[in-house]
Amino acid sequence: MSIEWIEQVLQLTVQMGTVYLLASLGEIYAERSGVLNLGLEGMMLMGAATSFMFTLAYGHLSAILTSIIVGALMGLILSILVVDMKLNQVVVGLAMTMLGAGLSGFFTFPEVRKNLLLRLNPSLPEEVLLIQQAQKLPEIQIPLLSNIPVIGKMFFSHNLLVYFSFILSIAMWFILFKTRIGLTIRSVGENPSMADSLGVNVYMVRRMTVILSGVFASLAGAYFFIGFHPFWREGVTAGRGFIALALVILATWSPMRAILGAYLFGGVETFQYRLQLFGLGAQSPYFLAMLPYILTIMTLIIISTESIKKRIGAPASLGIPYAREE
């Protein structure tokens, strides 16, 4: 275990964790406002598929922008179904996950993809139409700082989205806990009828947070694909949306704690692969893979205690549709 090895593991930990961090940030807002978005995985897949197609067609910037739009659309559909129509959030969320998985697989199927790419950009050369990988986002090394031994690579040698996610989570923590907007969002999740009687448009707040969660999930998918693992296969995110969902619980709905949790999960996953390479404990990857889920179940049990629930301010009306009484 050389220094390089440790540096590389730490760097990968952060890069892997960023997938979870991005996806969980939007979900934290949605859940804080009382809506459980179980469609995270499907939205991530849509984001990954969109970024794949658009990177091939027009490059990275278009990929990120379009995946944001796709995420917003998915979020909009979800918000109409669960906020306006007040349908069961679990059922709709699972349906969205299936839809995202189905659509993303459908549109990236080689035959279909070829036609779509040609329609997007007719000047694409033949060999691009059927490749299974895209170009990775370039890494930006921060001069001097990235040369610090051990932790330099961990913090200062990533692509832009990683830096962006880190800054964003601090900003989103600030908005959620230190501003009026955040207070409004939290009050809607805590006691919607009270918020309503104080003049807050509960529906609008929830619509916005759900769309936001769609945007972030899709962006997380796009980051995962073009920023971390640019090799396409069907269902490429492999259940990471559900790990992000778990992370929201582990972070007890705080963007700040989500940073730590995300890197913890990122580290666990990095180790999973590293240990396999070493041939160390051939059985361990499966138990390591379980760890995020087990941790989450334990967190759920711990925060079910009334006193802790109060202290962290778990959204009391999570999963309950709001219907205005008139």
Partner: peptide, 22 residues
């Protein structure tokens, strides 16, 4: 037809049933 088409088809049935409930 890609295998994902089945999943998409199922998901659409799922979504429409849910909207039907509404």
């Amino acid at each position: 037809i890609p295998g994902a088409a089945v999943e998409m088809h199922q998901a659409l049935i799922f979504l429409f049933i849910v909207v039907g409930e509404f």
